[in-house]
Design a protein around this nucleic acid. Structure first.
Lengths: 220, 220
DNA sequence: TTCTAATGTTAACAAATTGTTAACCTTTTG
DNA sequence: CAAAAGGTTAACAATTTGTTAACATTAGAA
């Protein structure tokens, strides 16, 4: 289990590194966001611990970069924040942190959070396989089958289809889709349409229905 | 699914609001117990998240008030507590909280708790579905069914019919409809009539009744 | 019953939304 | 590092939806 810690304070890196290694994790460290991103791409950690406040590229910016890197989008992220920074710092950001821990850090707390997250023992489970009529989508294996034949979807296409299939029938507005599939990135509406078109090209036009003036939904 | 959050700290409201909206919930907020109760009575949320510590009316008092309000007695309640307050505070109290979460709040944890609670499904209602006689309208899925047959309504038609069906029997003046359906846009009265006509064309003339000189209403 | 204001209807037109393509940039992978 | 795959956008076409004007019809007061 690989963990990358990114913090500008050397002492904290040492402290966390020591405590996490003791728990049997493979620990990597970086002292700034730029190096952090570079390392992350190389080692593909399972979990990344980020300091919110850092010079050059702060934790939130780094988080966004990580989440928009394909290889890393499934990595778990824990933020470290000074207590005084409070939620206001976190409130507006759109990056997808999984949890955060305030400084000063209690190693016991941090480790229990890490264990919880890595086990997904949060009690939080996305149903990873959804099967509707002849169509099957498996999030873990990242495959789509139509009538038992494999269909290859690109990442965004996959995420988009998966999102729609989590709540068949519900109409998702483009705004909702941008939040859920694009992590609130600034993309145009037409971008979504193009992806929908590509999906339809692959699974047929009957599964995804356009609700004009509202959005898209799965099924009839 | 409507969620009301009551907390005196603005940052927390923002933080939770952002994270819950992203999950597709309708989120409302209040900064004190008194306003919280007022809002709760108005919007009838499915779930109320309460800070235990608040000036004026604290979470537990508010909780009791909520539980003794008929319309709200089925609402689920989650407490937020600062870590230091410990469980002992909560253990003894008699108000009916369904769960609690300690600060600092991990959004994923909170959301998984919410999902768990809402799934316990005590009288789980989609309040977005209204069904009257053979007619059914589902806001989330954006479908209208007459006698189980799908009816396709355009956006304005849908909004108009939904509006009328939220309060069957109430006469809506054109002015009210322009406010609720057209967001106060400058449209002529005949425009409304045309839309009414199109709806009648699709669901039959018996559901929407004209009240001459006043407006339109659903049913008798 | 008659008259009149309110509503119903139609069709034409304007506006908005979505579909499609191709070009261009970015990321991934061999 | 280069080729391939994926992602995004702009431009434009196709389609649907919304609005209005003009006129017909109707309810209900006088």
């Amino acid at each position: 289990m690989k963990i990358l810690i990114v913090d500008d304070e050397y002492d904290i890196l040492e402290f966390l590194s020591y405590n996490l290694k003791k728990e049997g994790y493979e620990v990597f460290t970086a002292q700034n966001g730029i190096d952090g991103l570079k390392q992350a791409k190389k080692i593909i950690p399972d979990l990344i611990i980020l300091d919110v406040m850092m010079p050059e590229m702060d934790g939130m910016e780094l988080c966004e970069q990580i989440k928009s890197t394909a290889k890393l989008e499934n990595a778990f992220i824990i933020f470290l924040t000074a207590r005084s920074e409070e939620y206001s710092e976190l409130a507006g950001f759109s990056s997808g942190a999984d949890d955060y821990v305030t400084k000063p850090i209690s190693p016991k707390l941090l480790i229990s959070r890490i264990k919880a997250i890595l086990k997904r023992g949060n009690g939080f489970k996305d149903d990873d396989v959804i099967s509707i009529e002849k169509l099957l989508i498996d999030k873990q294996k990242h495959i789509v089958k139509y009538d038992d034949q494999d269909i290859v979807l690109a990442r965004k296409e996959f995420k988009l289809l998966y999102c729609l299939m989590t709540m068949p029938g519900k109409v998702f507005t483009r705004e909702e889709l941008i939040t859920k599939v694009w992590n609130d990135a600034y993309v145009g509406d037409r971008t979504i349409d193009v992806h929908i078109r590509k999906i339809r090209e692959k699974i047929g036009v009957n599964y995804i229905k356009t609700v004009k003036g509202v959005g898209y939904k799965f099924n009839l």
